[in-house]
Amino acid sequence: MSRHLAKEVLSIEAEGIQAVRDNLGEEFEQAVNLIMACPSRLVVTGIGKSGLVGQKISATLNSTGTPSLFLHPVEAMHGDLGMVAATDVVLAISYSGETPELNRLLASIRERSIQIIAICGNTDSTLSRHAAVTLNVAIPREACPLGLAPTTSTTATLAMGDALAVALLNRKHFKAEDFRRNHPGGSLGARLKVAVREVMLAGNKVPQVPMSASLADAVAELNAKNLGAVFVTGKKGALLGIVTDGDIRRMLSARQNFLEVTLAEAMTPHPLAIASDLMAADALSIMQQHEITVLAVISGQGDLVGILHLHDLLGKGEFRFLI
């Protein structure tokens, strides 16, 4: 019963985001242009659930190259309004557009000739009338069966914030190295900064056999190193192919003459590989995209120098698929 209800909630929330997507118009481009022209910060404000969503939107903006701060409407009216500069742009969030604490604040902000962007579900509201641009997040219904608790509406608002952040990221040509500079500490920062050569296995830990070896030799190496794959190399160490546990299992079930299969028949030529001077983040991205757990590491000349296993990247929980 609970599982069916959960599916219904997710369907309703997906329906809400689809409605917001379908209603998206030129006002989104106007909002992006307004923020791009801002010489200082985007001040995000809202109260209650909208305030909590606003804090997340502000955090996402900061990490993706758009300077932002969150301003609580009540604290603003008791002195924190001094945080807002005349050159700032305000992003105000209220689904109803009639939140008294927020609208009182916006009247003071307008007196300072500060531009306001609204994220609102009611374009005929006080908030919308205060705003230079309104991003409409009207949804057909809340997932709450009572229609009272903000559920679909907060999801739609959060999605609109993400859309803004990504659009701004794209306009600013924000790169992975910029993201790393904004995340110098913590597990995410560590994951993005570690070079492949720092986490790869090298030397005799790398499962490999020469092209002249037999399939039996490859299976023995596969079992000895226990990493789920063995690489096939040329005379000077050039990476030629890979044989995985899965390859062996499939051949055992499909070939009656398994012992007569050659290494050249068994291997997958030109396997995916990564250069040792690239980042662990790049390796994670390749593994996720191709749904693999091992990756060859090569030198600039294409020689096999190491192996990356997903477990080595995940470590003790310091690495996650976030790309």
Rank of each mutant, 00 (worst) to 15 (best):
I35W: 00
T99C: 02
F231P: 04
A138N: 09
G300Y: 00
L135N: 00
Q30Y: 01
L69C: 03
L272V: 12
Q55V: 12
G48A: 07
V133M: 06
E291L: 13
V209C: 00
M160I: 04
E29C: 01
I12R: 05
T87W: 07
S153H: 02
Q30T: 07
S108V: 10
L169M: 13
A229Y: 05
A86E: 15
G228V: 07
L263S: 06
I274Q: 05
H173D: 13
L102K: 07
A195E: 15
M279S: 11
R3M: 14
L227W: 08
L10H: 09
G302F: 01
V9Q: 05
A176R: 12
Q288K: 13
S299H: 00
G189D: 12
G203F: 07
I248C: 14
L52M: 13
G234E: 12
V90G: 00
E8V: 14
L201D: 14
A195C: 13
A296Q: 07
T123L: 10
R41S: 14
R255V: 11
G306M: 01
L310T: 10
S153D: 00
A238Q: 15
V74F: 08
L259P: 06
T126V: 14
M1V: 13
L240Y: 13
L10C: 13
L192Q: 10
S68L: 04
L158N: 04
A143W: 03
H4L: 14
E8R: 15
A195D: 14
R110Q: 14
A86N: 15
G241N: 05
I323L: 15
E101D: 11
D217I: 07
F179M: 11
S68T: 04
T134W: 03
G147A: 03
A229L: 05
T60I: 09
I12A: 08
G315F: 02
R255E: 10
L10V: 09
L313W: 01
G315I: 07
R112G: 00
M1G: 12
T262Y: 05
A86T: 15
I292M: 09
P100G: 11
E318C: 00
N33A: 12
A31W: 00
V9R: 06
T154K: 01
G16Q: 10
T152S: 03
